[in-house]
Every structure is written in structure tokens, then in C-alpha cells.
Design a protein around this nucleic acid. Structure first.
Lengths: 182, 182
DNA sequence: GACATTGTACCGAACGGACGGTACAGTTGG
DNA sequence: CCAACTGTACCGTCCGTTCGGTACAATGTC
């Protein structure tokens, strides 16, 4: 298993066990690679593994969120596409968000800057759609924040209640809510 | 420092470092108690310490959220009181929510049931206010979920952006949003 | 073609250290 | 005196990490 093929596996472990719970022993078992082999592909150790996952998620965000929001179509339709992709990546609310996991784990300081930048670009992309649709800039920025807030909050609640339905409802309602001030 | 006086200290450490980052060494240093003393007050070890903090938060929730929501006054006013208390306990968005921390940490399975129950009672209390104000039951339940989602999401975003202002805005807007369907 | 060299992938075993937790002999205070 | 409490020293376990080394295909050299 190469460096690239490790990444989905790492993402799964991090989401399931958290940053501290995803130990090298578990990673070794899940990838089939010995610990020493993991250090061959990721000389920086565990933190480099997580950085690689963040690189992957950054690419995913660019391709599946930013590009879609920046693409053609009606604003409402583009926001619906975003929600479709989010529904996929969070598996309908069954999977937590790695960003939140890292922000609340013991290594939060290490990854904070990365997560900060990812959040900001996500918010800005939503706001850009709404601005293009005629919304005033400050209000659009707030709506962008509200979108991310709704997603993150719904994922937390879905985890807490062990029930994905709040997330699914939010995903379904979000596009219309973001457009309601237009 | 007794068992009870330890709890605010424990809460602070858990919020600052997460479940795994709040080590016994840090707890010992912060409380001024040796490990033996900690184990005298909390024979069940670290998990019992966290349980004690959850007991404390459960009492806090009852006294500051459930009781207020169930008390006298206009629905809007009661929701505003809830938001005031939340603003205090989360220190204006500077502090994360322990529930989310536990849900996304490595010991999530241990505390999941407790957090589940706390979330549900919180949601139900918001819904009860809205039902009393004339809202249809299912819709009230959804609005209750939306309230908790907004709080949790805003706390995540405030952590991620290192900026409490999204939380403060959500707190300010929440009462009106919850009442908008009345 | 035969042989040495290099680079990549991988592994078993062990490391130092920190973790949560315990045993026990004091020491304090009513 | 007795119970509550605490300091010290210690335990086993697991953590992330590193070491020395093997297998093997690719490349270079005569």
C-alpha cells in the first residue's frame, strides 16, 4: 500500500477514533503496513500522515465544493450540488468532520492554521455565490458562515444523538435557507 | 482542594486540551493535588473525573437552561435568557463545548450515552417552549434541534477561525430565529 | 550477458518516555 | 485514636519513533 492509497484509510481511522485514538498500531493494522514502513512513506510521523489527509481534503474541497460553487448554473442549484457532495463525504451524517475532530483534539494547535484556511475558503465560496446573486456583501459573508455552522452543528448533533436524520434535514433545507434573503 | 472544587478546574483543562490532552500530570499540577489525592477523591480514575464534570454540567443545564425555559415570561424572553447563560458558560465563544470534545475524542464510546441524554433534554426543553407558544409539535422539535445545531456549529467555527464573533452573532440572532414560525 | 550499484518498499525488534493507575507509609485534624 | 487525606515511589502498558537490515527491481558498467 503506497502513500496515496493510505490516505482514505487514514481518514477513516481518524474519523472513527479521533486524532489520539487513531494510534500507529491501529494504522499499521488497517493499512497492512508495519510501523517502520509507515515512517518510510511519512517521515514526519503521525503529524505528516494527518497533513497528507488534510492535503487530500483540501483537494476534495477545491474539486467538489469551491469548483461547483464557482461553476455555471443558478445559485440555488449550485448550493444544492454542494449539499449533495457534502452528503456523500459525510455519508449522510454517519461520519464526523475531521476538521472538528482536529480542532477539539489534543493536537489542535498543530493543525489549527490549516483548518482555519479551509473554513475561510469554504465560507468565502458560499458568500461569493450569494454576492453574485445580488446579496449585500456583509450579509453574504454571514450566510456563508451560517452554512458552515449548520453543517458542523448538524454533524455534532448527529454524532451525539447517534441519528443521522438531523444532518439529512439540514442538508435538504440548507440551499433554500441560504437563498431566502435574495 | 476537595472533589467539588476540582470540577471547575477539570472542566477548564478538558476544554483547553481535550480528553486525551488533559493528562493526569496536567490535572495534578492544575489542582495542586498529587495523583494519590486525585484517586482518593475519584477512585474510578480519569473517567470518573469526567463523569463528575458531566454531573456538574447536567446540574448546570437543569438550573440554567431547562429551568429558565420552563419558567415564567414570554417565550422569546425565555429563549433570550437561555442565550445569555450560554454566552456566559462558553465565555462568548472562546471556550469549546465539552460535549463535542467528548463526542469526537478517543473515549467517545464511554460518554456517548450521557451526552446523548443531555442533548435530548436540551432539545426537548426548547421544543416545549415553542409548543407552549403554539407551534406544531414536529416543527417545534425541529426548531429545538436547530437551536442546538446553531450553538454547536458556531462554537466549532469560532474555534476554527479563532474568532468568537460568529458565536456571538448566532447567540444574538437565535431567539428571534426560533420564534420566527410563530 | 554478467555483475556491481542504487533506490524503493518493507519489516522485526527495540527504544525512551509518558500514560493511567496502585501500594503504602506517613501526616493531618477532629 | 481514628478516619481522611497525601507524598513518594513504583508498576505495567502502550505510545510514537528509530534502528538495522532484507527483498527486489531498475540502472549502470565492463
Amino acid at each position: 500500500m503506497s502513500r496515496e492509497t493510505c490516505i482514505p484509510c487514514l481518514l477513516r481511522l481518524l474519523r472513527q477514533y479521533g486524532y489520539d485514538g487513531a494510534t500507529l498500531a491501529k494504522i499499521s493494522e488497517a493499512t497492512g503496513l508495519g510501523k517502520a514502513s509507515l515512517y518510510h512513506h511519512f517521515p514526519g510521523g503521525k503529524d505528516e500522515m494527518v497533513e497528507a489527509v488534510l492535503d487530500y481534503l483540501e483537494r476534495w474541497l477545491n474539486q467538489n465544493i469551491l469548483q461547483v460553487l464557482n461553476g455555471p448554473g443558478e445559485p440555488l442549484s449550485r448550493l444544492q450540488q454542494m449539499c449533495d457532495r457534502l452528503n456523500q463525504v459525510y455519508e449522510g451524517g454517519h461520519q464526523p468532520c475531521l476538521f472538528a475532530i482536529l480542532l477539539l483534539g489534543s493536537a489542535r494547535d498543530v493543525f489549527h492554521q490549516r483548518v482555519n484556511a479551509l473554513f475561510r475558503s469554504w465560507i468565502d465560496a458560499i458568500a461569493a455565490v450569494l454576492i453574485e446573486a445580488g446579496l449585500e456583501e456583509n450579509l453574504a459573508q454571514q450566510q456563508g458562515e451560517d452554512g458552515v455552522i449548520a453543517i458542523q452543528g448538524a454533524l455534532i448533533l448527529a454524532q451525539g444523538l447517534h441519528d443521522p436524520s438531523p444532518f439529512q434535514r439540514i442538508i435538504q433545507q440548507l440551499p433554500a435557507k441560504l437563498c431566502q434573503n435574495l
